Simulated assay, not measured.
Amino acid sequence: MNFENLRTVYDNQGPFATVYLEGRSPAADAEKQVRLRWDELRENLASAGAADEILKNLGDTLIVEDITEVQTDGRIVVANAAGVVLDEHWDAALGTGDTAHYGQVPELGAYVREGCRLVDMVLVIANQEGATIRELRVSPQHEATQQDESVVSGDNDEDIHAPRQGALSHNQIRRRADEIVKDNARAVADQVDQIVRAREPDLVVVAGEVQGRTAVKAELSTRVTELLEETDQGGTDDDAAEDALYDALKSLASDRVQAKQAEDSENLSYSKAHDLAVEGQEKVSQAVGRGAVATVLLNYDVGSEGEGAILADAVLSSAGFGLVDADVADGIAAILRYDAATALAD
């Protein structure tokens, strides 16, 4: 997941209140439940010193007409006295609970951790006439979020199915049918390439019927092919086919997240051996404040004290993020852009 959107959050003036409202099952009394949950969080924030303007901005965002959506999708909302600076669905695991934080920087550790477990995908459901293209954000644990969908088909209305009689006629029509399929696949590939250039997804997944998949794959650019995965599971024929398809996407997302975590752990080990990494809140804070950090690595599950300010400096210095299961001091480490001695020098 790309965290560039957070740059505009940190460009605002604090203090900030950060609210995480977990997603829960739909209920007839959703409005009552959300109001009660917000009342408790509001009281906690007020006790911590949050101004009335901040609390009003949060309340106006959470207590809305379509409040059932807030209940089922969850929310992360960050606000200061001027208004709401971040408002997104919060798809954390059920049982994570509601939390509220107040301070000079937003508390976005949980948001970043969840984002590191999300995989941006372009799903191409292909057939011989074209494809349905879905832009998705997929988690190994949660329902996929669809951000956009487009349908691409060729401009030719000719029948792609050749007759069975007449050898010469059959061969001619078969060649023409192959040309039409190729043209349709090329149109799909061009659209996918545009999306990849604009969105820079983690994966491009080709699904659908065999002939359609084969035709589309043959037309994809090198840039797209480097991101390519393929699945023969499911489809769009009915709900069962859709469920099978999205189960396959979750599996691909899980593989991607695990591979990225293994890569980050390996990079950390290598960097430590070459004096290109630091651990612990104090050293990471010092290094990131000087713009010396290439990647901040967070403990997979547990937040660390002071990480909110570290994440702010990391975003503003264009550092990346990752997760590690390794035992690191204070649950936080950093891979550096240059040697640790220089990064920590007084």
Rank of each mutant, 00 (worst) to 15 (best):
K217E: 14
L344F: 07
V328Q: 02
A292W: 04
G306I: 05
A218M: 05
V196F: 05
L45I: 06
L86Y: 06
H274G: 01
A162R: 09
H170M: 12
K32D: 13
R113L: 10
R137D: 09
D346M: 08
A50G: 04
Y300H: 13
E4K: 12
A110E: 15
Y111C: 02
T132Y: 04
A46Y: 08
P140L: 08
K283M: 13
D275C: 02
A100P: 02
G115F: 08
E200Y: 07
L94A: 15
L311V: 12
E69N: 14
L220V: 08
E149L: 09
A333Y: 04
R7D: 14
D190F: 08
A341G: 10
A50D: 06
Y111T: 00
V119Y: 00
K272D: 10
D39C: 00
P106C: 06
Y102P: 00
L268G: 00
R290A: 09
V302G: 03
F321L: 09
H101R: 05
I67H: 03
A187P: 01
E200C: 08
K32R: 12
L276A: 11
T72W: 00
L36S: 11
A343K: 03
R256W: 11
E279D: 12
E226V: 06
T342Q: 15
V85K: 01
P106M: 04
A167N: 03
D183T: 15
L58N: 01
D155W: 05
A187F: 07
